[in-house]
Design a protein around this nucleic acid. Structure first.
Lengths: 221, 221
DNA sequence: CAGTTTCCCTAATACTATTAAGTTATACAG
DNA sequence: CTGTATAACTTAATAGTATTAGGGAAACTG
């Protein structure tokens, strides 16, 4: 044998199997036998590709987050204004989460229980991802679009906290509704606190929520 | 034997041991033998008090959250104005987290990985706790303190998201700084978006952060 | 004091992650 | 084409770990 292609293929099969099983049954309740069986291998063979079950848990989201970092700059390219960039960041990120819910589940639900989470590549890469928010907020302060006395680190905390809250709830509720329901309204409410006084708020979106209010309570509350 | 007091005592010893070990080494890496040994028992004896390891994980925070619900009403009693109540809610909750970091760690880091989290008592009790925010926000809307067009559910999402973000980071960073650092500033920035136009913002706090800005980056970023 | 219950123990069981040691079969050097 | 190195995989062993079975002794009950 000695085929590079088949080796990569097998590795991917293991990753995909593990991803599915972790997201489905949880990390603890997934056995190495479950994973290797799903991938069409013996248990021992898996250890030729990964150091073990925990290594597998850490590797999966690492690939995903790295891909996100590569994409972000491109997505923000050409967008004018800090608030428009913040909006794009949120919509873009939630779409990526929607497209890769298994990776997101591992990052936002399972990884944090790991004692070494703060020392992982994933953590430092997510930090890099969020650090773009600081740049955007500073830019907005410079241009006068955002309050001159706004501390970008505090604003980022609010932004990231709200975003992760939305994501986590959606994942815990088994993705039973759209991540984008009411997003416009939550975004506007959050961003209103960041705006400079001259900068206009968004009146259109406000009307919308009145119609969909009850809907929201049912599904997400 | 047959002593009720000693039985309760043993149960508490098990809970305290488990709490410490879970928070310290994580749920997975804590063995039943670790717990029972710390509590001065054999492994089998533990099963007379709890159905198993997972039952123990779910029981611990349940007691804590129930206690919080009992305390909340009393804490808010006599406070005038929705924004003052929101402030009190945040400060009170963070103090309780600071006083019981082991319970908080289990609720905010470990429990969410459990596939049945949404069906637990803890989840529904935390929901009850957060539902007070809706009442407060509606009150503020009625009194004109808060924007008349604010949807309280969206505002709650921002409030809870930001609060849980602050708590989670603090727990992951091994509680190496004070939970209350910069809290005033983050609170004011968040609440600025909720305020009715006539309602005055808080200018005093803003000056403070300029002095402590670098401090914040070092420790929390 | 006899019987029952409470509280706890030792020992067995079944499952799981990981390792050891070996097998198959392909690539490729000569 | 043939022998062999090695990539890719297997079965079987090992060292834990959660949970259960079954029992024993102390203390309470009547």
């Amino acid at each position: 044998m000695g085929n590079k292609v088949s080796k990569e293929n097998t590795k991917n099969r293991i990753i995909e199997s593990a991803k599915k099983l972790f997201a489905d049954k949880g990390y603890q309740k997934t056995t190495v036998m479950d994973i290797s069986r799903q991938a069409g291998l013996s248990e021992a063979a898996l250890y030729d590709y990964f150091q073990g079950k925990e290594d597998l848990l850490l590797t999966i989201p690492d690939l995903w987050v790295l891909e996100l970092i590569g994409d972000l700059k491109e997505q923000l390219f050409g967008i004018k204004g800090a608030i428009n960039k913040l909006r794009k960041f949120l919509w873009w990120y939630l779409r990526r989460v929607e497209e890769a819910p298994l990776d997101a589940k591992i990052v936002y639900l399972f990884l944090k229980t790991n004692a070494n989470f703060m020392k992982t590549e994933v953590y430092s890469n997510v930090k890099t991802l969020y650090s773009y928010l600081i740049e955007i907020l500073e830019e907005g302060r410079g241009s006068g679009e955002i309050k001159s006395d706004l501390n970008p680190y505090f604003a980022r905390d609010i932004f990231v906290g709200t975003m992760e809250h939305i994501i986590t709830r959606w994942l815990l509720k088994d993705r039973s509704y759209s991540l984008f329901d009411n997003l416009e309204e939550v975004f506007n409410l959050m961003i209103d606190g960041f705006r400079a006084n001259g900068s206009e708020p968004v009146p259109v979106a406000r009307k919308l929520f009145e119609e969909r209010k009850t809907d929201y309570e049912d599904k997400q509350d």
